[in-house]
């Protein structure tokens, strides 16, 4: 097994974020290696979801949010004034906690993103839809029912549809915000398998409250924690997943992953 040199797709540098006056996360510095899966773990309210939403500036949609520090995508600060957030979100896609297909057909759900960038050619769209559904390991289950509503699918299928919908936009990074918290264990494993396959082409960041999931799917793990109530969430430890789960450096990480608190 040869270790190829890791290049960083995204770099979070001294990032702090405030909701109006409340400091949600403080001084997080973290690298997101290309074509690897980075997991963010920590107890509820530790700021891991907040952090991941900083990576495609989804927090901008909330009133009163303010950030300090930088997040770089391929070396370019996405928080610099005038940065194209719409273009950013095409490059950094997101899969949410609850499967949220639009109340449109399976086909229209996947074609939504490509249509936004002006792809109208039917054949081209057909190709993208098929290709994306195949990459999301859903094609064989839905190829005969593409015109049915995406919301008629099972929870796990809906989540894979949402992944296909993101893939169709051909992003470089895919963020997963607790993607399996609303679906059953078998569907969860299917999605974990899928993530392992997507690693070839995409950089992924997954927020999960399920430590075992982080252990199973990720290459790198970051542990976040709010130490005292009212304090901001901070990054406690970051390292390759194997080390984090066999021999973490920080005692707090050890206590969290062994279930001694949180």
């Amino acid at each position: 097994m040869t270790e190829e040199a890791l290049e960083n797709k995204m770099q979070i540098k001294n990032l702090s974020m405030y909701y109006t006056d409340f400091k949600a996360i403080e001084d997080v510095t973290l690298d997101v290696p290309a074509r690897r899966i980075t997991a963010l773990i920590g107890p509820s309210g530790c700021g891991k979801s907040t952090l991941v939403r900083c990576l495609n500036r989804m927090n901008d949609l909330i009133e009163g949010v303010r950030t300090e520090g930088q997040v770089e995508l391929d070396g370019e600060n996405i928080y610099q004034p005038g940065f194209d957030t719409i273009g950013l979100r095409r490059r950094v896609g997101m899969v949410f906690q609850r499967p949220n297909p639009f109340p449109k057909s399976i086909y229209e759900n996947v074609a939504y993103g490509p249509k936004l960038v002006g792809i109208k050619d039917k054949e081209k769209l057909d190709f993208i839809v098929e290709d994306s559904l195949k990459k999301a390991a859903l094609w064989h289950e839905v190829k005969t029912i593409l015109r049915e509503s995406g919301q008629n699918l099972s929870g796990g299928q809906q989540q894979r549809l949402c992944i296909a919908r993101v893939i169709a936009v051909q992003p470089e990074v895919i963020l997963f915000d607790e993607p399996c918290s609303a679906i059953d264990p078998v569907a969860t494993q299917l999605i974990e398998d899928l993530m392992a396959e997507l690693k070839e082409n995409f950089t992924m960041v997954i927020v999960t409250h399920n430590m075992q999931q982080a252990a199973r799917v990720s290459d790198f793990t970051a542990f976040m924690l709010v130490q005292e109530q009212g304090e901001p969430g901070r990054l406690i430890e970051y390292g390759d997943t194997n080390t984090m789960f066999t021999n973490p450096t920080d005692e707090r990480t050890e206590r969290y992953i062994t279930g001694r608190f949180g």
């Binding site: 495609n56 989804m58 949609l61 719409i86 273009g87 979100r89 095409r90 896609g93 997101m94 949410f96 609850r98 949220n100 639009f102 109340p103 449109k104 939504y112 993103g113 936004l116 960038v117 949402c162 919908r165 993101v166 936009v169």
Partner: peptide, 27 residues
């Protein structure tokens, strides 16, 4: 209209107005 639809649309690179036109109003 669930907020997650808006978020999903924005995350696919839709502007706010496009999201309203393509997702919010039809829904």
């Amino acid at each position: 209209v669930p907020n997650t639809y808006r978020e999903a649309s924005m995350c696919l690179g839709a502007s706010k107005w496009t999201t309203i036109r393509q997702v919010v109003i039809p829904t």
